[in-house]
């Protein structure tokens, strides 16, 4: 069987691109860009590109953490609620201290501590992370309203703060720059470091990883902390973007993040996935989002579409792997 398969791959380059994970994503992205731009002139304009990058940045930052977490064999459903709560913390601390730096640090610290609790619940209390982080989501969604009933405004009207999200460095939007740095670091970790290997190994075979003299719990702990910290970082950008802390923000955010990661070829079962795939997954979903707006389609499609894409992506994944697996 492997022999015939390799023959097929050599004789059929199109199939090879379709069956290679990143190749398929690149093709889909190109098809989307060509398709949408042929219906809308605005699509390829500079302001629209900036808008897409802005939109993608928040999702990508968290998706990098989620990729590492899913590869380790766990999941975090609480990132949306964490994002909203952390953004309120950022704004509240800035209002208290008059310091953007302290506000940003507080937001990242808050996001990280949510990750810490998720890690504790999963690796020490041995609660399934799907359930544990849904519970965390519920606590955060309720808790944020104990913290603030309504959006926290920028009381001091610090003009510098909104600039984080809307500013440019070297012609690149700041959030996109931050997301790129996060993605590059994530890529280096996953492809070049021992830590990356252990994330992959833990997700691929937890028992084998333990027998090889490592602690899968510690590995997962790190992945949860990373996801929480990156959610905190995204919250700083979100607060800057709307120049406020919004307790109702982040609804459905976790679904978009997970959809993008899975679309990028990361396995829900762990052990398999790439940062590159996640970048493409995020771009595809966000370009589709953008297209729906530009083509003046009903905006409810923005959440319907990722659902359809997700099923298609997982179906393709099944097919691709089904040929080699059993």
């Amino acid at each position: 069987m492997p022999a015939t398969e390799s023959i097929k791959q050599i004789t059929n380059p199109i199939k090879k691109i379709l069956t290679s994970e990143v190749g398929f994503l690149v093709l889909s992205l190109l098809a989307l860009i060509i398709g949408i731009s042929s219906f809308s002139e605005q699509f390829l304009s500079a302001p629209n590109a900036v808008a897409i990058l802005h939109q993608s940045s928040l999702v990508l930052i968290v998706a990098i953490g989620m990729t590492v977490l899913l590869i380790s064999g766990e999941v975090d459903i609480s990132v949306g609620a964490n994002l909203a709560f952390s953004s309120c913390v950022v704004m509240a601390v800035i209002n208290q201290t008059d310091s953007i730096a302290l506000g940003a640090l507080a937001g990242i610290a808050f996001g990280t501590s949510v990750g810490f609790i998720n890690a504790f619940v999963t690796t020490v209390l041995k609660v399934n992370s799907l359930i544990g982080t849904i519970a965390m989501m519920m606590m955060l969604k309720g808790g944020v309203f104990l913290f603030t009933r309504e959006a926290i405004q920028n009381h001091h009207q610090l003009p510098l703060f909104p600039k984080i999200a809307t500013g440019f460095v070297l012609g690149i939007p700041v959030p996109a720059l931050i997301a790129s740095i996060v993605a590059i670091i994530g890529w280096v970790i996953m492809t070049r470091t021992k830590a990356g290997r252990l994330f992959l190994a833990t997700g691929a075979n937890q028992k084998a990883t333990r027998l090889s003299g490592y602690s899968p719990e510690r590995v997962k702990f790190a992945a949860f902390l990373l996801t929480g910290a990156l959610t905190g970082l995204a919250a700083v950008i979100l607060a800057s973007l709307i120049n406020a802390g919004q307790p109702t923000a982040g609804g459905g955010f976790e679904l978009i993040v997970i959809a993008a990661v899975l679309l990028g070829g990361t396995s829900l079962m762990g052990g398999r996935g790439t940062i590159l795939g996640t970048i493409f997954g995020v771009l595809i979903l966000k370009i589709v989002d953008n297209g729906i707006i530009l083509l003046r389609l009903n905006q409810d499609y923005q959440i319907i579409f990722p659902g359809i894409v997700l099923i298609l992506a997982l179906y393709m994944d099944q097919k691709r792997r089904g040929t080699t697996n059993d």
């Binding site: 290997r197 992959l200 190994a201 691929a204 075979n205 028992k207 084998a208 990883t209 052990g271 398999r272």
Partner: peptide
């Protein structure tokens, strides 16, 4: 308890 089925030979060997 031993193999990472989808990973390649090197990754499995050097774990």
């Amino acid at each position: 308890e031993g193999l990472m089925m989808d990973a390649n030979v090197t990754r499995n060997m050097t774990l």
